[in-house]
């Protein structure tokens, strides 16, 4: 079946910016199909209309197709989809130790500067480690670049979508629970040092707790009434 009859189509050429462009105008009704009779058109259109109506009534009579979530009521049972990008979160193992060692790749990958990462040097192991991981939800576009950039699989998306707050400054999160060595530092330290358990204890003792809102806020301004003041250091 030929779609365009080359004999009936008209050809012309125009010049666009010094480049010749060929134009082929296909004649009307030259798609190779026969012109249909009135009754065929009528039959086909009625059939297609009825098909559409069959599809919609199918949805109406099957309540299982409803996708609406009754949100505040089903808060307990609500499960988000696997690929849902709620909020950024640091991966933690079963002991609560994170993977992140503060390598800065994510901060460099972030296209709009939503990630601010501070690192420090551990006094026991002498290695660089995470001091504070600041993430600005208010300027994040959930583009996933940080997670793709991370060499240690230390970042992931959580399904928490209830991020509404009354003050914009509350959208600046400190993602790490503690400042200190990541889990592979601890493992390696154990392996390398071999015997002294107290050295591991010493390493773990360098951990400092961090609060979710405990970071420096990049937005200026005084505290608003009803909003607890942010701790900045």
């Amino acid at each position: 079946m030929s779609y365009i009859d080359p004999k009936k189509s008209s050809r012309s050429a125009i010049e666009v910016g010094g480049v010749p462009v060929n134009i082929v105008v296909a004649p009307r009704g030259a798609t190779g199909d026969k012109r249909e009779g009135l009754l065929t058109i009528f039959y086909k259109s009625v059939k297609s209309l009825l098909t559409g109506m069959k599809v919609t009534i199918g949805y109406l009579v099957r309540p299982s197709t409803v996708v609406t979530q009754q949100y505040p009521e089903n808060r307990e049972t609500l499960k988000m989809f696997e690929r849902f990008r709620g909020q950024l979160r640091l991966v933690k193992d079963e002991n609560g130790y994170m993977n992140c060692n503060g390598c800065d790749f994510c901060e460099k990958a972030c296209p709009n500067g939503s990630i601010i990462l501070q690192d420090r040097r551990n006094s026991v192991s002498g290695k660089s480690e995470l001091e504070r991981y600041l993430w600005r939800l208010d300027s994040c576009t959930f583009c996933n670049a940080c997670i793709q950039a991370c060499p240690h699989d230390a970042l992931e998306w959580s399904d928490g979508f209830e991020a509404a707050v009354y003050d914009r400054r509350l959208l600046v999160y400190t993602l790490n629970d503690y400042a200190g060595p990541p889990v592979n530092h601890i493992k390696r330290f154990k392996k390398k040092a071999g015997t002294p358990e107290d050295r591991v204890e010493e390493l773990l003792a360098t951990m400092e707790p961090r609060h979710q809102y405990g970071g420096p806020t990049p937005l200026s301004g005084k505290g608003m009434p009803g909003v607890p003041p942010l701790k900045t250091d």
């Binding site: 919609t56 949805y59 109406l60 197709t65 409803v66 996708v67 609406t68 009754q70």
Partner: peptide, 13 residues
């Protein structure tokens, strides 16, 4: 209600 159920929604609840 009818519109909602045609479109896989619940409508006013």
């Amino acid at each position: 209600k009818v519109a909602a159920h045609f479109q896989c929604r619940l409508g006013p609840m």
